[in-house]
Design a protein around this nucleic acid. Structure first.
Lengths: 161, 161
DNA sequence: CTGGGTGCAAATTCTTTGCAGCTTT
DNA sequence: AAAGCTGCAAAGAATTTGCACCCAG
């Protein structure tokens, strides 16, 4: 792994703390699922986590993995790559632009930024491969969702602009 | 729409040019599907494109929409939000970091950058909502895929670090 | 014309849900 | 003991595929 062993312990401690605070049970499965994601450095999907955990907990089921991953996500202990729980979305803009994504609803808005466009990719990244595009993803909660308050999720972006 | 009417014409012209060059037929469906994505500023998913196009072409089918969208993506005429054709992937790192994603295989690598971490969100974006996180997505082709050449897609990232 | 493209319907893949029994608190 | 979790199996989305007919080149 990339990070020191301490880091895993710290993440697990955080899981414990959050579960206690929110009143969630700290089951064997939850710990192992969280550990699997925390230990991997390549951002596994649910199926991959399932395979990994199953090596240690043979009775684990795939649906528990899904339920737990989304639970951890709601608790803020893990995040997702790309928009959350969303089918693939397409973009016809080929010029350099960036995205603001609302974590509550499906809203995504483009924006331009000369500063962001000017970003130069670090040398270590260039060593990973050929870079074709660099764009900034800003996540947050849109004004409409913020107005509606609460932590619940809205399925429909309000502003039709 | 946000961009001038000319822009749509330019995008359609580009579609024509690319199809001709590659020897693809310029069907009514392809034009309408492309137009639907090009005209929308909220990054529709396949289902939404389907609904939109169906208003003008009642016989369109959802599978044609999928096929066409992925075709346009391969031609470089549209892109996707988040990783392409990939189930949801999870990330247990909560500290600020960024991603390099290979467009050929499923490889995703984290990297750190003080410069990227220091980015400040433009005022107009802050008006869209509350920002919780800013990260940079670098897309390209990893060294292993580059070595394998060709435009085909590899399903398995080779390097196990 | 002729082959690529489309529509249909069925198949996959990814993810969620209802329910009965088992585990943490 | 009580409520929350889990595993199972079945349901539900999202996406893909096989095949016969049709249209752009």
């Amino acid at each position: 792994m990339v990070f020191p062993a301490d880091e895993l312990a710290a993440r697990l401690a955080r899981l414990r703390a959050v579960c206690r605070d929110v009143g969630l049970k700290l089951t064997h499965q939850r710990i192992e699922i969280f550990r699997e994601v925390a230990l991997s450095d390549d951002h596994p999907d649910a199926e991959t986590v399932f395979q990994g955990v199953r090596a240690r907990v043979p009775t684990i089921s795939l649906d528990t993995v899904y339920r737990t991953l989304w639970l951890l996500e709601e608790l803020g202990l893990v995040t997702t790559l790309g928009p959350r729980r969303d089918p693939t979305r397409f973009d016809a803009r080929l010029d350099s632009h960036h995205h603001f994504t609302c974590e509550s609803c499906r809203l995504v808005r483009d924006f331009e930024s000369a500063e962001f466009d000017a970003l130069s990719v670090p040398e270590d990244v260039r060593r990973l491969g050929d870079v074709s595009r660099v764009h900034v993803e800003v996540r947050g909660r849109c004004v409409d969702c913020a107005r509606r308050r609460g932590l619940g999720r809205n399925d429909d972006p309000g502003g039709s602009e």
